[in-house]
């Protein structure tokens, strides 16, 4: 009589707990548990991640090695943090629009002066920064080749 018991035990692990009498009263209420993606990523197809290098934005609580979430579907507005393309470089800055027609890219660190975008500059907004992911405990290692193990 060994076989049938083992079969049923395994069925249990597949379907979640099975109660002998009435089904669990919570079963009707089963829902997907929280996923950080739902909170942080409003437009998955236009969202990109970047890793911050350098200290030019520490005034905005963005530190080296933080990951920023960039949405390219959003329109930039005054005071938004943006990833901007200036010529052949992408840069993370605060956008400042001074009426009537002046645009500044501002670092959040007094060591770096603001940059005025000139009419002649080859400039575009690449995307708008929506979230910052800042680790408080050193994150888990990301194996990339070296962490491989044969089984």
């Amino acid at each position: 009589m060994n076989e049938p018991t083992s079969v049923f035990r395994n069925v249990q692990t597949l379907m979640g707990p099975v109660y002998a009498g009435f089904p669990s009263p919570t079963e009707d209420y089963a829902e997907k548990s929280l996923d950080l993606d739902d909170l942080v990523v409003s437009h998955p197809v236009s969202t990109y991640y970047m890793r911050v290098v350098g200290d030019s934005m520490i005034g905005a609580c963005i530190y080296p090695n933080d990951v920023i979430v960039v949405d390219r579907a959003l329109t930039a507005a005054n005071n938004r943090l943006v990833v901007a393309r200036l010529g052949e470089q992408l840069t993370l800055k605060r956008l400042q629009i001074v009426k009537p027609k002046r645009i500044f890219l501002k670092s959040e660190n007094p060591a770096y002066p603001p940059l005025e975008v000139k009419r002649s500059d080859d400039f575009e907004i690449w995307g708008v920064v929506t979230w910052v992911v800042h680790a408080l405990v050193s994150s888990r290692p990301h194996g990339d080749g070296d962490g491989r193990a044969a089984i």
């Binding site: 991640y49 970047m50 290098v53 840069t91």
Partner: peptide, 13 residues
């Protein structure tokens, strides 16, 4: 692989 691996995402200053 900018959109595939965390280790390879774009770096920004």
């Amino acid at each position: 692989r900018y959109t595939i691996r965390w280790q390879e995402i774009l770096q920004i200053t």
